[in-house]
């Protein structure tokens, strides 16, 4: 493989790479790849990983307050899954030469972002339902599409994550369904939560295609397989019915089935709010990041203890060998 590359010009090598992508072949860790492809992937995968881990916060906060032991167990299992998904993704990014320390540092320094949705607070128990139903639902739409991403380790990670994610959405919907079928007060709580989480969920798919900074190149490299607007439409189409079935109303006066398009038309997102939250000025941005920094610092003694224990075992082995 090295030989054929030295005989080719850089343009030919790059062409060969693109031909492989065009033929729907996966790129694997040791293949040659353009530096920008590598950087683009590290950015996307690490931000995806950060989202999984930061996403543990709004839900983790409700574990002790879940309304029954059964719901506590479920929520605990879900939050545990999110931590696991973060691990799969960090590992995929590491196959590209990024270190875990660099990625965490970039998050703490504010250079790496995470899904803006987690900067909204989970105020009521219904929000835990809305997060599972809508936030995980939106994430699944995106992740199902990413199962076909061009980078092998990322694609395989997505397959694994999607398999586990279905329970997340169903448990969330089940919470909403239970509340919506409960007392007037419980139903109002569910509706209020849908009202607050609907628009931020639509924002999860990012800016319109025309305004998306990384989209064109990512589509050419097949890192992204479907555009932001396509994925958003898919999410709206499948979610409206789910709301109807449990008697909740999607908070969008412009929402209307368009027979001609075969899709729902829906209102415009408040892009000012979107930009404000992305820029760091959402309701919980500071709190989320500060909590992550604190947890990381307070966990230092655990990492130190692991290293110290390994050193001790090695010294003992050396002494025995001597």
């Amino acid at each position: 493989m090295t030989k054929e590359h030295t005989e080719q010009s850089p343009a030919e090598v790059e062409q060969r790479f693109q031909t492989r992508i065009d033929a729907e072949e996966k790129i694997e860790p040791k293949d040659w790849m353009p530096e920008k492809y590598r950087q683009n992937l590290i950015r996307q995968i690490s931000q995806h990983a950060h989202s999984e881990v930061i996403g543990m916060q709004p839900e983790g906060n409700w574990i002790t307050r879940a309304p029954s032991l059964h719901r506590k167990c479920i929520l605990l299992a879900k939050v545990q899954d999110e931590g696991g998904h973060g691990l799969y993704l960090y590992s995929a990014a590491e196959t590209l030469g990024a270190s875990r320390e660099e990625m965490v540092e970039a998050l703490h320094a504010g250079r790496a972002k995470y899904a803006s949705i987690f900067n909204y607070p989970a105020l009521t128990w219904a929000d835990i339902g809305a997060i599972g139903w809508l936030v995980d639902g939106a994430a699944i739409v995106n992740q199902v599409s990413l199962q076909r991403t061009s980078y092998g380790p990322y694609a395989r990670g997505m397959v694994r994550i999607c398999k586990e994610e279905s329970f997340h959405q169903r448990q969330g919907y089940h919470i909403m369904m239970t509340l919506a079928g409960g007392t007037e007060e419980q139903k109002a709580m569910a509706q209020d939560s849908l009202n607050r989480f609907w628009w931020p969920s639509l924002m999860m798919f990012g800016p319109h295609d025309a305004e998306s900074a990384h989209s064109a190149q990512s589509m050419k490299w097949k890192i992204k397989r479907q555009s932001n607007d396509e994925l958003r439409q898919k999410f709206v189409d499948q979610t409206v019915k789910q709301a109807e079935v449990i008697g909740l109303t999607v908070p969008d006066p412009d929402l209307k089935w368009n027979e001609e398009r075969g899709h729902y038309d829906f209102g415009e997102i408040d892009w000012e709010e979107f930009n404000r939250v992305i820029a760091g000025d959402g309701l919980c941005n500071r709190q989320r990041l500060a909590h992550h920094v604190t947890a990381h610092e307070e966990g230092q003694w655990v990492r130190d203890a692991i290293t110290a224990y390994e050193d001790k075992k090695r010294q003992r082995a050396d002494r025995r060998a001597a």
Binding site: H70, C73, I74, A77, D81, G137, S166, F167, Q169, R170, Q171, Y173, H174, M177, K241, Q242, V245
Partner: peptide, 19 residues
Amino acid sequence: DKPYRHATHYQLPDEVNNM
């Protein structure tokens, strides 16, 4: 003993059961 980790644990109405 954690059946709730499986998607099938949650009984949903037929119309939305493909979630």
